[in-house]
């Protein structure tokens, strides 16, 4: 497939669809640009290789790290904390958000409080979490829970409110009870949006776990990055940063794929 020469100028018209090959090509170009920038900065005469190590040194560091014992236990630890915190948040925030979105009195009672709580910066909660939960696993899971629960509850409520009222009316005239409207109409209708909200929260949860691990931990990706910093092992830091980015990207794509597969019925513009 090729484009007519004059078609290139049309590609920048607002909301013009892009051919698949060009989309993939441009995405690769973006990554290549980053690598190029890195190489250029590293090759400058005023660069100290401790700041921007040559790519070969990062590759060697990656080899050592991936074959070492710490890496996989770090990944497992961070992954476990994110999963536990996020699952807990989903478990409580989805029903809570459903109630906020469905019942006005509950919305009036809780939404302003939740709006307030969600703007408390999560790192600022670390001291209080440590006082309550100590410095063990519980504290990190609690921090991820606190960081995502309020956001998720409000996003779920918003998705529930977006289910058209006509669908609720239709269900009522077919004989649906209040509980059936909640489960068969509001929850089902909001489900694609809820999964998308969980995807976003997953991204934030990874930020929070790294912050938590930097403060008090004996393993985990965040803990290790700080450790490398103490010994000024820049190549190792870069390896871990790449791993964190890749995990985030992979999980994000996984969520998107699930959403596309499970909710084919949903309007394409919703994704």
């Amino acid at each position: 497939m090729s484009l007519q020469p004059n078609a290139w100028s049309h590609l920048l018209a607002v909301r013009t669809p892009l051919p698949r090959w060009l989309h993939v090509g441009l995405a690769c170009l973006g990554f290549a640009g980053c690598v190029g920038l890195y190489l250029w900065a590293g090759a400058r005469p005023d660069n100290n290789p401790t700041f921007i190590p040559p790519i070969e040194r990062i590759a060697t560091a990656a080899q050592t790290i991936l074959s070492g014992p710490d890496f996989w236990s770090d990944v497992r630890a961070s992954f476990g904390r994110v999963t536990a915190g996020l699952l807990l948040a989903v478990l409580f925030a989805v029903p809570f958000g459903l109630w906020i979105g469905a019942f006005r009195p509950i919305e009036a009672l809780t939404q302003p409080v939740v709006e307030f709580l969600r703007y408390v910066p999560v790192p600022a909660l670390i001291p209080i979490v440590m006082i309550f939960f100590g410095i063990g696993e519980g504290a990190k899971i609690a921090l991820i829970f606190l960081g995502t629960f309020f956001q998720l509850a409000l996003m779920v409520a918003e998705e529930v409110r977006r289910v058209p009222n006509d669908l609720v009316h239709a269900a009522q005239t077919l004989g649906a009870s209040r509980g059936e409207i909640l489960s068969l109409v509001l929850f089902r209708g909001a489900l694609p949006g809820i999964l998308d909200a969980v995807r976003l929260c997953n991204g934030w949860a990874w930020s929070y776990v790294v912050v938590a691990e930097m403060i008090a931990a004996t393993e985990g990706l965040g803990f290790r990055v700080l450790r490398f910093y103490r010994f000024i092992q820049t190549p190792n830091i870069f390896v871990y940063l790449l791993v964190l980015g890749l995990i985030g990207l992979a999980l994000d794509q996984l969520f998107r794929a699930c959403n596309a597969r499970l909710f084919r019925w949903a309007d394409a513009t919703r994704r």
């Binding site: 058209p164 239709a170 269900a171 077919l174 004989g175 019925w265």
Partner: peptide, 27 residues
């Protein structure tokens, strides 16, 4: 029973599931 001016089919159900919606309700 009511038929609305706007389209009110449940978008996550197929045509057959939509027509059977009321059969699953407790009432």
């Amino acid at each position: 029973g009511m038929v609305f001016q706007n389209y009110t089919l449940f978008p996550w159900l197929t045509v057959r599931e939509n027509t059977r919606f009321s059969l699953q309700l407790a009432r």
